[in-house]
Design a protein around this nucleic acid. Structure first.
Lengths: 208, 208
DNA sequence: ACGATATGAATGAATG
DNA sequence: CATTCATTCATATCGT
């Protein structure tokens, strides 16, 4: 996910009219393709605000806010959170690699948390172009920069020299999953961490 | 896949190849390149053991075993099975379906390895499937889709005809399965008796 | 060098 | 919440 930035954020042109009526206008792509801004916001909510399983109300607000950046529906938001959360856990589950193998360049795949860093080579830059970098990256993730698709085209990337092997941070034992999100405990409650609700409401308590 | 032309698997250079450059740990390849041994084992598991979608524990075990033959991580195993299964099916979809007026003999399919008898995992028809599952019943099982899936296990179809007003009490909280996020009054029921899942698609009308 | 194909990776959508 | 399916992107590899 992060390692490579795929997918082009679909330009606002959606099907539009294609119109014509008549028949199937070819839904262009039946599935929602989040724009970079939408992803940025979603991740911000996820990591900075601890939103993991937004309630119906929250979903509505979020989707409303994200609608500014592109077509989106409630279910998209719902699924996004579901998937993001599930995958995070799943990845961890896969490689609960036994803490053996010291020092070897082994290492569990670091799931998220890698900065986007596309490609060392010439990079093909899909459709993005510079895009409005004015947005300033800004969401500044409190703990780690996770989201990948940032306007930041930081060049670089020595990715993966020895990712995680030791989990540098040193969480003793558990390998991956050092997400330092705001501190909400992912496993404790089943859903809706109302906690941040306040923040969330403030966050998107505007339009709608 | 079938037309095996498998490339000659990577030589012993699985050290990451980073070797060459003094320090730049360029992973040489961002993506996992299975060794022949790994592939052999994976296929063995797939065909001879019927492993299709290994669970987390199995994945761990498998990746641990494969690690002897080269660097590998849990996700690699996970994706491998996912992809292998998906592609096998995808291909079969074309093959099995095509109106080969030939008598059947069954010759078209070229078993790629060994026996491969999987269980029909029924795949539900995509979105289309006429919504006209009117209560009239009569689903007429004559032969739904002809997309060739052998034993079409039409899965549960329309069970659950309970109107279950469900979710009645307000949105926040028990969304069981009837997402209430839709701002549109979910209480319209009446239509809900077909398939609860449908609501997610149609309800999404969301104001706009 | 390209173009085609094979396949790893990612993720939206659904189902159980 | 876990699992699975379908699609699509990205890239490795082979063919010509």
């Amino acid at each position: 996910m992060e390692p490579q930035q795929q997918q082009n954020q679909q330009p606002p042109s959606e099907d539009g009219g294609s119109g014509k009526g008549g028949f199937l206008c070819r839904p262009s792509s039946t599935r929602w393709t989040p724009t970079t801004d939408q992803i940025r916001i979603l991740k911000d909510l996820y990591y900075n605000n601890g939103v993991r399983s937004p309630s119906a109300e929250q979903i509505q607000r979020i989707s409303a806010r994200l609608r500014q950046y592109g077509k989106i529906e409630g279910k998209n938001v719902f699924y996004w959170f579901q998937n993001h959360k599930a995958r995070e856990r799943q990845k961890k589950r896969f490689n609960t690699d036994v803490p053996m193998q010291r020092g070897v360049g082994n290492g569990i795949w670091k799931p998220e948390e890698s900065v986007n860093v596309k490609h060392p080579t010439a990079n093909i830059t899909p459709g993005f172009s510079a895009s409005s970098s004015s947005s300033s990256g800004v969401v500044s993730v409190g703990q780690m920069g996770t989201y990948g698709y940032g306007p930041v085209t930081m060049e670089k990337s020595f990715r993966d020299c020895s990712i995680s092997t030791g989990v540098s941070g040193g969480i003793g034992g558990s390998i991956s999953h050092n997400f330092g999100w705001v501190g909400v405990d992912p496993y404790s409650s089943s859903y809706t961490l109302f906690d941040k609700r306040r923040s969330i409401e403030e966050n998107l308590g505007e339009d709608q």
